[in-house]
Design a protein around this nucleic acid. Structure first.
Lengths: 103, 103
DNA sequence: CACCTTGTTCGTTGTTTGGCGAACAACGAA
DNA sequence: TTCGTTGTTCGCCAAACAACGAACAAGGTG
């Protein structure tokens, strides 16, 4: 596959986003991306196999939370800013709870 | 059982709360309670059997989102205000997205 | 007491989830 | 071209989930 599929804003649902956020591994990934940075797959130390990580990344991407960019054989992920257009305040609220000092 | 069990604030987890909110039926229940009112089981028109509804109510209660009060054979539910002490802003953020005009 | 109403629990069914390793695809480098 | 690296996909499995009806418990009411 060239670049992976990203759903349109109008296809996103709140329940789907909340479900994507409701797994500890995925929550950690989103938290790591909170600073707006773009990260490679290998930078996540979440303690799961690469196939499992791949599935989590797919879940986040299809929920509209993240954007994945392929470069050669590498993948990079970052938060989708336009998610906040669809569901304003949701991600900030969650990040405020997982941010510095909290978990 | 007399009154049902409600978990202590320190036993609540963010992932658990998000998962509880990630089901359309439970999201509708929470949305209905957004005005701070207390509702009886029968007031929810969510299209599931009473046994299924009972399970959803249990899920919400154990996630710390709702408070259940028994009166005779009837049950009444409302949002737990102290949830916002543990996870400030989370429920308001979700309610803002499901409130008037949205779904 | 008998009966009705209201929820909970139990047992069942089918689906989804989260995890893994193995196999595959794609690219870059030697 | 042949490797090695990096993700994805493909079974596969156990656990969790969501749903239902039936059976049960507990209060009211007649």
């Amino acid at each position: 596959m060239r670049q992976p599929h990203h759903p349109a804003l109008e296809d996103l649902t709140l329940a789907r986003a909340l479900k994507a956020l409701s797994d500890p591994v995925r929550l950690r990934i989103v938290t790591t991306l909170a600073d707006g940075s773009e990260r490679g797959w290998g930078e996540f130390e979440v303690g799961v196999s690469k196939s499992t990580l791949s599935q989590h990344m797919k879940t986040l991407r299809e929920a509209g939370l993240t954007k994945t960019r392929m470069e050669g054989t590498r993948c990079y992920v970052s938060l989708r800013e336009d998610f906040d257009t669809k569901f304003p305040g949701l991600v900030p609220a969650v990040l405020a709870l997982t941010g510095p000092g909290r978990r």
